[in-house]
Design a protein around this nucleic acid. Structure first.
Lengths: 141, 141
DNA sequence: CTTGACCTTCCTATGATGGGATACCCATAT
DNA sequence: ATATGGGTATCCCATCATAGGAAGGTCAAG
């Protein structure tokens, strides 16, 4: 049983020590054993769990999602349908957010395209922000 | 000179009263005149400014960006190049964020595609979160 | 005169993360 | 023995944009 300190756990899993303590405080992981100094130390299984969390975060899952994924992960008898449902719902959210950002980007790009970008003051970008009525075209090229 | 209350200003500009007060507190807009009751009241020009801010926020600009845009907007002698630079930097940020979300979405979609999604427990999604080595494919279709 | 609908200020929360202060524990170098 | 330096503990505060609520003042209509 390899026991490691929080700094080592951080280096191994890529989760900052700050965040490891935070996960514990919000009950995402359970409190690890302590040495006599009250220093936290982590077992292989706990490191594995932290890695799972980091990879979930890398995929943009929220803590609430991760809480559910972790419980499904621990449950050997889970149905893959439950996991897939969480993943697909998240995919939908990701796609929506990406689409929203792209719409903003497209609008700004088309405004910037008609802006001289020189010393003269006239600027379609400011005009679009100025005038409510002159609806910003969502440019469908 | 039409003077309106904060609730009317909110209805007209689409900025919540909460946020209007907040913009004032962080110095994004200057403090409006008050009636004898200490009620804020807004002029046409101030409503216009609030509308400008809302449209900027709709395009995803941060308060810091908006602060700069507002000052350029007020400055009749600004160069359009300055405005364009802010807009294009923002476009770059938007595109980066969108790309990151799309990468997550693509990964999850490809994992979900190979997940049965039935009563059986085996699930490639959980396996990918489980295994650090089995690098999650970024699927280049 | 009360009711209800405004307005005011101040405090708190969100979600995920970072930063810092203060104090304790421990090993190594002097 | 002790000073130095580095890891750890807890606690508080900050971010960004927004929302909720409490507690109290103001006003018009019933």
């Amino acid at each position: 049983m390899n026991l490691v300190t929080i700094a080592q756990a951080s280096a191994i899993t890529g989760v900052s020590a700050k965040m490891i303590r935070h996960y514990e405080s919000i009950g995402l992981i359970k409190a690890p054993l302590r040495t006599e100094n009250r220093y936290r130390h982590y077992s292989e299984a706990e490191l594995h769990e932290l890695g799972f969390i980091r990879r979930s975060r890398d995929l943009g899952f929220s803590f609430e999602d991760i809480r559910q994924l972790l419980s499904l992960w621990r449950d050997k008898a889970r149905s893959s349908a439950e996991v897939k449902a969480i993943a697909l719902r998240h995919v939908q959210e990701l796609d929506q957010k990406a689409a929203a950002l792209e719409a903003m980007s497209r609008t700004l790009k088309s405004l910037a395209a008609t802006c001289h970008g020189d010393d003269r003051p006239d600027c379609p970008i400011l005009e679009a922000l100025d005038l409510p009525d002159k609806e910003v075209s969502q440019s469908d090229p």
